[in-house]
């Protein structure tokens, strides 16, 4: 059970946006629903390149998330700043945050991203109900 918060840039944005359409059923891979604020999320999906400015935003989002913080990096730019490794303006995700799952590709296929979400949803929140997650977040008025 995960509540994803998606940070997307570049061409991975197109793949992630096509994923968030109604064609794909996210509940099949363990997503209860998408978080509307970072405070409700326990999964952070990073897709595309990361600026130094955006890296600071990502750290703020990561601090605001729920206790069991899971991170998926999508695409070569987020994984290791592939073609822009010598450029100072592109930062790899594993240099700022602890990343749990890597989805390689430029951009990756949609089924690989779904495979990552389903694998990480088995790690996080194993013995917790939806009510427990809401109590952790301190927001009872969410639903």
């Amino acid at each position: 059970m995960v509540y994803p918060w998606i940070e997307q840039t570049g061409c991975c944005e197109l793949v992630l946006k096509s994923l968030s359409s109604s064609v794909v059923n996210w509940e099949q891979v363990g997503v209860v629903r998408k978080a509307e604020r970072p405070e409700e999320a326990n999964l952070l999906i990073i897709g595309g390149w990361i600026n130094p400015e955006q890296a600071q935003n990502l750290k703020e989002v990561y601090d605001r998330m729920l206790k069991e913080k899971l991170v998926i990096a999508v695409g070569s730019c987020a994984l290791s700043a592939a073609a822009f490794a010598n450029d100072e303006n592109c930062v790899a995700a594993k240099e700022i945050l602890p990343v749990h799952y890597f989805v390689p590709g430029c951009p990756p296929r949609w089924d690989d991203i779904l495979k990552g979400i389903s694998a990480i949803s088995k790690i996080g929140m194993q013995n917790k109900t939806v009510r427990d997650i809401l109590n952790d977040s301190g927001n009872d008025h969410v639903f």
Partner: peptide, 12 residues
């Protein structure tokens, strides 16, 4: 065939 995604720590 497409490159397999994996958890942190698996061999890439």
């Amino acid at each position: 065939e497409w490159q397999q995604p994996g958890l942190n720590g698996s061999s890439f």
